[in-house]
Each structure stands twice: as structure tokens, then as C-alpha cells.
Amino acid sequence: MANGVLVIFDQNAGDIRHVVLEMLTVARSLGKGPVTALTFGTDAAKTLPKLAEYGADRAVFWESYTQYSSDGFSAAIAQSFPQFDADVILFPANAWGKDLSARLSEVLGAGLATDCLHLEAEASGRVKAIRPVYAGKALAEVVINTPVQMFSLRPNINAAEVHHVNPEVLDIAPSVDPATFQAVVVERKEAQTGTIELTEADIIVSGGRGMKAPENFQLLDALAAALGAAVGSSRPVADEGWVPHSYHIGQTGKVVSPTVYFAIGISGAIQHLAGISGSKYIVAVNNDPEAPIFKVANYGIVGDLFEVVPRLTEEIKALKAQQ
């Protein structure tokens, strides 16, 4: 009986997201059969060294599928599925993975748990998952009842551990013809290059209405540069157009799980907290000692951000200069 783990992910010019390494580590931790990595498109095979470093026993590259298609890719995976020897499938819980995993779930008739924080194998070999619900205001322990169990994994929660192997590259070729794909990606628009993606960032510096004006975000850019951090925001400042919409963090924006989250001039509304509850450390700077953000913060400074932030930046630069 199939008992391996199939790890399915996207790649871009041979680069893979950190969450893929986390998925490979989680896949191995389940102690099941072989871990098979599957990816698509031109340069898919360039991911091999990383897959070898993080413990993929086998790899499958579908390089002729150059344009992403949710219907096309799910049909191809379903057709080849018996050859993967897997009864667990892992996806990244990003826009790509959520799109494809939910469709594949229906095509395979396999239950899916979205955006899991933690997976654990039970004695039976079945997998138990922990996932957030109500935007992280509660956690749910879930199990899948169908023979094939599917999970998507939230980035930045699980560790990625090096485990060198020599992956066997399998020649599994589905007959699904790209000419039959219906929904097809025809163009990709990158946001500003050189910025760190919030959902994968280790440190985030985030500003709220307390920043008072768009030009004041320069203060946060400077702090972020000193820290090597990404910049985010509360919703109102993104709505006002002070920062791009992609900065918006919270229940209706991005859900982030950095090691350190700096909330600068952010009150800590429940919808904002929903997006940051996975942060290991929350640091707040706010001139209102009663601001709700202080109830969830690990560290806080009560003070005027316009006086505190530039000094923080200086102190961090000084520390980095010593290191």
C-alpha cells in the first residue's frame, strides 16, 4: 500500500521558497515512506541540489508544464498519482498552493486541511494536524478521513533541517497535454524587487495610523534596513494609500509569523492581532500606555514613535557594527 509523502510546490527560475524546505523536513518527520518532491516548469530540475540537501528521497520534474494551470496541473497529478506511492500530500499554504490543493482535493476525493501549523503522525500512520481557525483566535486539531490525506503548510512556522540524500529522479510523465489546459497564467507581474515577502520575513517592521503621514514611513524603512526586515502596515494606512496594499497585515490581509514583529503606532485592534499572533516576539512602540497592543507584546516602549524610532535605528546599527 502506498505510504509515502508527496511534496508539491512551485519554483521560479530554479529558486524555491523557504517553506518548501520546511515541508520536506515535516514530510520526513512523519516517519512514513519515501518523500517525493514534485515541481513544474522551466528550470524545475535546478531545484535538485536543494532537494538533496533537505532530504527528498525522490524528485519528479515536469518541465514541459511551463505555464501554471490549476485544472491542467491537477489533472496531471491525478493521472500520475498511483505512481507516486503516496498517501499524504503536502502543499505550501501560499496563493499557488491553496489554489491547486483545493482543486486537487476534489479531483482525488481526498480531504484537505488548509494552512496547517503542525503535523504529527499517529501510531496508525494517519496524520493529525493543528490549524488556526477564526483567524488564529482558536486552534483546531483535525484529522482527514479519506485514504489520501492532504495538508497545506503555513510558511515560517516549522524549522527546515538539512538532511543530505541523493534523490532518485523519477521519470513519471503524465499524458495530459498543455494544449488542453483551460485556465492558464499568461503573465506575471513582480512587485518591487529586492523587498522581502512579508509571509516569509524573519523580522517585520510595521506601521499604523500613528505614523501620521506617508512620508514618515521613511523612518520605518530606515529601521527595517538596519534590521534586514520587511515593512508592513495596519489596514487603514494601506486603505489610505500611504503604503501599497501588499503591506496590509491582519485578518483581511496577510497573516505573518516572523521571529520579531515591530508594531509602531498600531493600536492592536483584534483584526490586526489576528494577522500577527504567530509572531514569536511582538515589540510595540505606542504613546498610549492603554493601547491593546501592549497586552500581546513581549516588549514595549511607551513613547512618541517619532522620538523612539530614529534612536532604535541608531542603537541597532551600533549593535550590528559590533557584530
Partner: peptide
């Protein structure tokens, strides 16, 4: 296809350390 065994509370966050006073001092201490 999927069963929720149970819902439970997320881990509570530890007591915060809150600094106040001179901006330069608090920034340094943080």
C-alpha cells in the same frame, strides 16, 4: 472528509516588559 477533533485556545503570550521614560534610554534598553 475532514473531522475537527477539538478546538482549543492558542498559547497565551508571556507577561510583557514595558519600558517608559527617556526615548534614548528606552531605545537602548530595548
Amino acid at each position: 472528509w475532514v473531522t475537527v477533533n477539538r478546538l482549543f485556545e492558542p498559547p497565551t503570550r508571556p507577561e510583557p516588559t514595558i519600558l517608559s521614560g527617556d526615548p534614548a534610554e528606552t531605545a537602548k534598553e530595548l
